[in-house]
Structure formats: C-alpha cells, structure tokens
C-alpha cells in the first residue's frame, strides 16, 4: 500500500445479531486531508468509527492503518478467532495467540489513531492537566520506581509532558482552566479538551465524532480554525462525522456519504453537493426536520 493513504477500509461489514449495520463499506483516507463522514441519522457513521478505533470488533472486512512507518490491521490486533490454517503455521499461530492474549483497542491508539466521542467521555474526576497527562503515558517513559525515587530522568520527562500539555491547552484555549476538574468545565470547553486529549496521544489520524454538536456558531467557527491547525501545523489527518453541512462543506477535502450501512457517494464537496443520490438520501428520508443547506 502506498504511503498516501493513512487509512484504508475495505469491505467492512458489521452485524449486530440479525441487523446489518454496515454492509460492505469501502473508502480510503488521504494522508494530511480533512475528510468527513456524513449521512442521515442511523446511517452507520458512528458504527464505522467504532470499528476503526477498535471499540467494536468488525464482523468482516479489512481496516488498514498506515502510520508511524508501518501498517497495522485494526481487526487483527483486537484478537481474531483461530483459523484452521494457523495450526499448520507456527508463526501465524503465535501471532494470533499474542493478539488474543495481549491485544485490545489500546494497540489501535498506539498505532497512531485517536478519537473523540459524540457524548463526551472525559475523566470527569481528574483535573484538566491530568486528563492530558494520562493520554501521554505511552510517549513518556516513567516507571513506577523512577516516580517514587523522583530521579532526574523522571523529572525531565515529567516536565516535557507538562510542556506538551500546556502547548495543547494553548491550542484549544483552556490554559486558564488547567487545574479545574474536567467535569466542571462548560460543554464547549469539554469538547475542546477532548480534542486536545486525543491529540496528546500523538496520533497520525484523529477521528472526531460530531465535534460541533451543541456548539454555537462562533464556537463552531473556532473549531473549524482549530481543525485546520491540526492539519496544517501538525500534519494530522482528520476524519470527522458532522451534521453541520456548512462546516462540512467548508473544511472537508473529501466526503464519504453513508446511508443504510452503505457508501452511496464519495468525492470532493462540490461533487457531493450535486449528487442526486445524496440529495435523495437526505431529502427523501426526513424532509421535515433534517436541516440541509446543500
């Protein structure tokens, strides 16, 4: 696979019992782009996110993450059931056993993918700074013993981590609230903190689930600016789910439209605006309350 795609989703299938939430979803995300995943309510957008981040284990298909100079198969690191072929190849057997025993969604994040949630999931009883520190523990090598003995290397690592925390607090404009509990922040601040926390894990691609939901127009404006900063200054690829069409059309380089668990269109904002299938999916389904300004 070439380096130009940071994420490749092939034939992704997700079933919940008899319900086919995702049915053969395919798309690629260009490195360094801002891409959007849109679609009417219940189309399966969040399900795609949950499969990407290892929150759900997909029923079938392939998700390849190409970050940090290597390729990671998201479904494989979650631990797959043994296949008959494994019993003939010791290498495949050991690898599968390893992921079965030690695999999990933490490996997806370590491979370079971070996400935020539609309903905010901060550690509400920890301070803002701690929320960002806890996201960095993979980068900062501080063992328990070193922490108790307070060694030089530990202090240095701690300082670097704090520096990074305050850098990101600066980006999301939360420096003043650094020592407050995350649960005390206002809704808009919590949303920004969640993005900062995702960025503290140093991802190559960050998935934002409805980042503008519940924000007022000026906050949405600020968010748009912030997403551009992520892309332009940090070379982070951004994939977002969003219902605010104005914002989506404004910042996206690439849009994937999902309906009933299938991709019905993908392309640049202009293609999507004029795509009859997309218009039908939105206007045909819920013409009364779906706010569409295509």
């Amino acid at each position: 696979m070439s380096q130009e795609h940071v994420l490749k989703v092939e034939n992704l299938v997700m079933h919940f019992g008899g319900i086919k939430a995702l049915n053969d979803v395919n798309f690629d995300i260009q490195r360094g782009s801002v891409s959007a995943l849109i679609g009417p309510n219940g189309a399966g957008k969040t399900t795609v996110f949950n499969c990407l981040t290892g929150f759900y284990k997909a029923t079938g298909g392939k998700i390849t993450l190409s970050a940090g100079g290597k390729e990671t198969s998201v479904i494989k690191v979650l631990g797959e059931p043994f296949q008959p072929a494994d019993f003939f190849s010791p290498v495949a057997f050991v690898r599968r056993l390893k992921y079965k025993m030690f695999g999990g969604s933490h490996l997806v994040n370590r491979a370079g993918l971070a996400r935020t949630f539609q309903n905010i999931r901060l550690f509400k009883e920890m301070s803002v700074v701690e929320n960002l520190l806890v996201a960095q523990h993979m980068r900062v090598n501080r063992s328990l013993i070193a922490g108790i003995l307070n060694t030089k290397a530990y202090q240095k690592a701690e300082e670097e981590a704090l520096e990074r925390v305050f850098y990101w607090l600066g980006v999301v404009d939360l420096v003043d609230s650094a020592n407050r509990l995350a649960g005390e922040l206002s809704y808009g601040q919590q949303r920004r903190l969640e993005i900062a926390r995702a960025m503290c894990t140093n991802p190559e691609i960050v998935c934002l689930d409805e980042p503008a939901a519940g924000l007022n127009p000026s906050e949405t404006e600020a968010l748009t600016k912030m997403i551009r900063v992520l892309r332009d200054e940090h070379n982070t690829t951004v994939l977002l789910i969003e219902h605010d069409m104005g914002m989506v059309m404004d910042i996206s380089d690439y849009i994937v439209v999902l309906d009933h668990g299938e991709v019905i269109a993908k392309g640049g904002p202009d293609d999507i605006k004029n795509n009859p299938k997309v218009i039908a999916a939105y206007l045909g389904a819920e013409e009364d309350d779906e706010e569409v300004t295509l």
């Binding site: 030690f102 933490h106 501080r142 108790i148």
Partner: peptide, 26 residues
C-alpha cells in the same frame, strides 16, 4: 502523583475510553 496512579484512575473512571487512549487496561 505517579503515571501508574493516573492510569489506574483513568481506567476506573472509564475503562473503554482509557483503552482508546492507548492504556493497556488489562
């Protein structure tokens, strides 16, 4: 105060989220 403690508290508050931030919750 330590990293281990922060990881414990994060896991206690939201295990799934902690694992999405790269913490090996097991």
């Amino acid at each position: 105060k330590t990293k281990l403690g922060r990881m414990c508290r994060a896991t206690q508050q939201d295990r799934k989220m902690a694992s999405i931030l790269g913490i090996d919750t097991d």
